[in-house]
Design a protein around this nucleic acid. Sequence first.
RNA 1: GGGCCCGUGGUCUAGCGGUAUGACGUCACCUUUACACGGUGAAGGUCCCCGGUUCGAAUCCGGGCGGGCCCACCA
Length: 798
Amino acid sequence: MSDDKYNPKEAEQKWLQYWESEKIYAFDAKKKGKIYSIDTPPPTVSGKMHIGHAFSYTQEDVIARYKRMCGFNVFYPFGTDDNGLPTERLVEKMKNVKGALMERQAFIKLCEETLKEIRPAFVDDWKRLGISCDFSLFYSTINEHCRRISQWSFIDLYHKGRTYRKEAPTLWCPECRTAIAQAELQDKEKQTELVHIEVKTEDGTPLIFATTRPELYPSCAGMSVHPTDSRYNEFVGKKVILPLTGVRIEVTTDNMVDPAFGTGVVYFCSSGDAQFLDWETRHPVKNKVYLINPDGTMNDRAGSYAGLTIVQARKKIVDDLRQLGVVKKIESLTHTVNAHERCGTVVEYLSSKQWFIKYLDLKNAFLELGNQLTWHPDFMRHRYENWVKGLKWDWCISRQRFFGVPFPVWYCKKCEKPVVANEKDLPLDPLKDKPPILTCTCGSTEFLPEKDVLDTWATSSLTPMIAAKLMEPTLSEKIFPITLRPQGHDIISTWLFYTTAKSYLHTGQPPWKNVAISGWVLDPYGKKMSKSKGNVIAPQEIINKYSADALRFAAATSKLGEDAAFQEKDLVAGDKFVTKVWNASKFAFMHLEGVDGSEKPTEVIDQWILSRLSAVIEESTEAFEAYEYSRARFVVERFFWDDLCDNYLELVKTRLYEPKAPELKKSAQAALQVVLPAVLKLMAPFTPFITEELYHKYLHTKEKLPSIHVSSWPTPQKRDKNAEAVGAVVVAILAAVRKKKSEMKLSMKAPAKKLVIESKVSIASALEDLKATCCAELVDFGKATEQITPDLKVSIEL
RNA sequence: GGGCCCGUGGUCUAGCGGUAUGACGUCACCUUUACACGGUGAAGGUCCCCGGUUCGAAUCCGGGCGGGCCCACCA
């Protein structure tokens, strides 16, 4: 027995299979009582699980396991997000194709097949972590179930008057050739040139403006200066003539002009320009000119620049202006521009027809909804509020892509009136299916299908409903609103906000009760991990090198909402913990053979450890209830290592091996048979594999449950303050003796000739245990010399 | 420019009103019948800086400095 060792590789595989085959984590639809439901984040199928996933999914799983042991019927589904642009990009890369150049249905089929091929291995990474999802409650955001709900959502909002279709300047990605939403923007540092161009008024006075976007020059609509800028007073209200195009425009004033930037003169254009949209609200332009094509090239209205890319056009226009002698200066400039987060391309604003969800009028309602949520940690609510307050656009939900949920919409060929599908026919594809009516109100019988697909967020913002509706209606009503939404702070402005918005629009309620926001995993130096920096740590390799338990142990060190630098030493610590639990259990259960439960803890040291255990159960439970799993892990680990292993087990060894009377051993057994199982259970949410192994090895026959993970969370007993006080003094004396022996470079087994104790707390009841552990030959109570604590002095003679 | 978070021994971290927790690393010692993947001990800290509140501050308040994230601006 003593040389048997724990092999995590074998054991973890064994338990993974066991949990799955025995359906340990299955949601019990028939069970009565309280449900704890989780809106599990569906990871985007894009390669592999990364270390950030490994940490955050562990953190939510720890909570799920705790709740399950507390008796909740835990509803913990698992989904994958494999809809839309990210999948298209992945498939294009894997299969070396371009969606835009393929036949539409062939590309969709290729996406579906590719997903089918890679999904199982992808999901396996999550299973390997030991998360306790019910994997039979599975969804993919592109499957029928999700398409149905996603299309229903659109129709519901359409009938509620919350969707509209409009031709308007929209954020546009020229690389992906689709409209995108505000939330999909990312900052990008860019090196560019600020070109100073001279124009003249009608009477010939020169005026110089500076721009980073000279390619938009053909659509120049006006110029502004700051109203208090004395340099330009004389220009206000006058017209200037643009060289090259000959267009006359008026100089106006605008408070938004920064006199210190460039020359203090702003020119604004009626196309491809974020600034214009803002300027236009104050300086209306009658004839807008859009210069840029959906693919990022210049169109016919750009005259001789037609067909050039934006970058080419910029160069050519500057060259042409230079030949006219009006380019006065070119400065280089680094500035931040908006780029599409999926591909990094600088976005443009293009006028196109798109579907929107109208919600800018609901900011206050969204803020109120955010208030109704319990945030873990609380300060994360500011991120949400900040985002809601800063919303400027309605939500553009149409995407000019292929692999996504189709809009359930057709248009009358004659009057363009949209025709929306019936709910009972969902899911459908207007490119394949017929509209629900034969004749439009205008009399026409011809309809055109909508070709656009829905924004992926339009579907993933429905996950609470998608999850709940995996169950039959009466049950899904109990599951919704979901108890917990776990997610990262990077997607508060997308996933969290959109989900809240949709829930409000459909139901008027918040989608969840709690949100738990996990932090990032940074590299050991505190920098963000990225493939380009080469500092990525693969969780699969970590699990192979250590174990899933060790990885989870490390993941549970960082608090919710806090970024944590990845430290390999945390894995070493996890590994050591697993070994230590194994050995301590082996020791304890070896001495518990033959117990019948009639043993009573009569010795004060045994009462001490039991009382300490109760204190730890209280602390751990309290921490878990506040979603502070890291504190829960910390207190249990300290109790286990310090109180239990280093002190208690040493203090009772003599009584266990060579008891002076049988009752003395029985008293220790009475404590051990409570403490060890409790520690295993307190640690089960963190290290589910080793605790399951030990449960089956030693406790299964007694409790007769199929798994420690469906056993009950320990309950604290009444504390024994006297025993706790005695225990604390005994531990302090033991430490003093150990220190002395260590200073003398002696073995801990070296005898102590004499020990004198001067303590305000009487420790007479623990004397035999202390004496044996210190190997003291003689113990006296009386005046001692060495101050240990204010209430304790000892003298040690070796 | 606005908001939020953070700043503790070499490194990471706990504590968040009574001068400091643990891990890793370093050093010394101990083969003690659960564990050498161990045990015992040691060295190592102006708790970012300056004010204030308080009998007392790492902990609360104000102001700096430094780092990070989100948002806005960027002609």
